[in-house]
């Protein structure tokens, strides 16, 4: 059987907020190591890779590997029935066709449970090689969210240019052009830092709407890491973490736009 107890059930709500725009349904793969999900959007332009480590859960038991196919809109409905500080337990019997979500209020005087039907999903998995990226940018996640939101007003694409000077985000459209440049800084408040690890300068162009969807994960982590190399997909990574617990990560891969 599978049973996982999450002290802060609100974490799963935030994870769902971060993937529900891109995916209608997805398989959660349960193993001894934890809960994992890998799924592409319908147009195969972006991929979500979620890893929630077993150690992040208050209790975690997985007797045999199983894959739980879920409709994410249904899961959103169920998670709406919980409070952010509820303790969440997810459980399923081996070979079951339902998964159960149990919400317990912090003081223990309210317990609710919801069964959700599982789906058989035939999802394609991609092999993603370990890559040394030519530039790795670490920046505040709310800043990333604001930049992609602001530039999406201009055009369907955002160019990200990373060089020794820093990072430049640009977008051009009918109303004109927007450029936002970030210099590497060493402000005393390390949360505001933009740090660039550069092997070689890279400029790549990506569809604005996917970057906007990725930015929905900004609530999970104060930091985001963007990794780029010439002519390969961008990786946007958010840690799933609170001040006292490291749950894992959510990574998004986004195929670039190229000259026709």
């Amino acid at each position: 059987m599978f049973e996982a107890r999450l002290a802060e059930g609100g974490i799963l709500k935030k994870v769902l907020d971060a993937i529900k725009e891109l995916l209608n349904e997805a398989s959660f793969d349960c193993s001894e190591a934890g809960l994992q999900l890998q799924a592409m959007d319908n147009s195969h332009v972006s991929l979500v890779s979620l890893n929630l480590r077993a150690e992040g859960f208050e209790n975690y038991r997985c007797d045999r590997n199983m894959s739980m196919g879920m409709n994410l809109a249904s899961l959103v409905k169920i998670m709406k029935c919980s409070a952010n500080d509820d303790v969440l337990t997810i459980k399923a019997q081996d070979n079951a066709d339902v998964v159960t979500f149990v919400f317990e209020s912090k003081n223990g005087d309210r317990v609710s449970d919801f069964d959700m039907k599982l789906m058989n999903l035939d999802q394609e998995h991609l092999g993603i090689p370990e890559t040394d990226y030519a530039c790795v940018i670490k920046m505040p996640s709310n800043e990333f969210a604001k930049i992609v939101r602001d530039l999406s007003q201009f055009g369907e694409s955002i160019a990200i240019a990373c060089s020794k000077q820093g990072v430049k985000f640009s977008s051009t459209g009918d109303i004109g052009t927007g450029n936002i440049k970030l210099a590497q800084n060493s402000s005393a408040d390390s949360d505001d830092k933009v740090v660039v690890d550069l092997q070689e300068p890279v400029t790549l162009t990506f569809a604005s709407r996917y970057l906007n969807s990725f930015a929905k994960a900004a609530g999970l982590s104060e930091k985001v890491t963007l990794s780029m190399s010439p002519d390969v997909p961008l990786v946007v990574e958010f840690k799933v973490a609170t001040s006292d617990n490291d749950y894992g990560y959510i990574r998004y891969y986004l195929a670039p736009k190229i000259e026709d």
Binding site: S43, V45, H125, L126, V232, Y253, A255, K257, D260
Partner: peptide, 14 residues
């Protein structure tokens, strides 16, 4: 003109 690539151009199915 720029065209959108898909992930299949970069990663293989497992």
């Amino acid at each position: 003109m720029q065209k959108q690539t898909t992930l299949f151009s970069f990663f293989s199915r497992t």
